[in-house]
């Protein structure tokens, strides 16, 4: 038996909106730790890792570890039917072939339940070791989204370079080139407007903008994004999910031949 009650149901809506175009089907894993997901896109270039810790739920009952295969587009369709202020409860029976999403309005005057068919998915889990990064950039998520969108109108790839000067996002295409440099800026009124660059050593990597733009669909989840870079390792683009967890996107770099 599984029963997870999330008062801030809009978080789950936002999570699904941010992953449904990247991954078609995925197994959601439920354990005492929390509600999690790890899935790759069909070309095995990008990976999403989600964790919503059990403490973040108002009620969290998970009698035994459960893996539920879901079509993320269908799950997103169902969660779209929840109001932004609704409380969302996820329910499933051990060994069952359905999951139920229950939506309660804040005043309890409307209660809806949507039952979705589960599916069997052969999931390939990758072991992601803890890594030391050469550079970690924390910046406003809206700014990062704007940069990715702007550069993708010029080119297909972005070179992200971190030096003492700051972080540089560069692209080139048929019509020309573009460079955007963001410097560390901690003298801001609001902490979410800060740009913080922690550099162990300079690093420069190239990534497909199509994926970066897809990751920025998580922007409504968090005011800040963290970009962790290391030579010849996938970049990690992380958005915190309120106080309860994170959504991390890994993207393999373009490799020089």
């Amino acid at each position: 038996m599984l029963e997870l009650r999330l008062v801030q149901g809009s978080l789950l809506k936002k999570v699904l909106e941010s992953v449904k175009d990247l991954v078609n089907d995925a197994n959601f894993d439920c354990s005492a730790t929390g509600f999690s997901l790890q899935a790759m896109d069909s070309s095995h270039v990008a990976l999403v890792a989600l964790l919503l810790r059990s403490e973040g739920f108002e009620h969290y009952r998970c009698d035994r570890n459960l893996s539920m295969g879901m079509n993320l587009n269908n799950m997103a369709k169902m969660l779209k039917c929840a109001g932004n202020d609704d409380i969302v409860t996820i329910k499933a029976d051990d060994g069952g072939d359905t999951v139920t999403f229950m939506f309660e309005s804040p005043t309890q005057d409307k209660i809806a339940d949507f039952e979705m068919k589960l599916m069997d998915i052969d999931s390939e889990h990758l072991g992601i070791p803890e890594a030391e990064f050469q550079a970690i950039v924390r910046m406003p998520s809206a700014e990062f989204a704007r940069i990715c969108k702007d550069l993708s109108s010029i080119g297909d790839t972005v070179v992200i370079s971190v030096t003492k000067e700051g972080v540089k996002f560069s692209t080139r295409g048929d019509i020309g080139t573009a460079n955007i440099v963001c410097r560390q800026n901690t003298t801001v009124d609001k902490p979410e407007d800060a740009t913080v660059i922690e550099m162990q050593e300079p690093v420069s990597l190239t990534f497909a903008l199509r994926y970066m733009n897809s990751f920025t669909k998580a922007t409504p989840l968090s005011n800040q994004v963290t970009i962790s870079l290391s030579s010849e390792l996938p970049v990690v683009v992380e958005y915190k999910v309120a106080e309860m967890g994170y959504i991390r996107f890994y993207l393999a770099p373009k490799l020089e031949e």
């Binding site: 790759m40 270039v45 990758l126 072991g127 992601i128 070791p129 790839t157 393999a252 490799l255 031949e257």
Partner: peptide, 14 residues
């Protein structure tokens, strides 16, 4: 010239 890396080149299946 560059090629798109795959995740399996960096992380091992478990």
């Amino acid at each position: 010239k560059s090629t798109q890396g795959r995740l399996e080149s960096f992380f091992k299946p478990v």
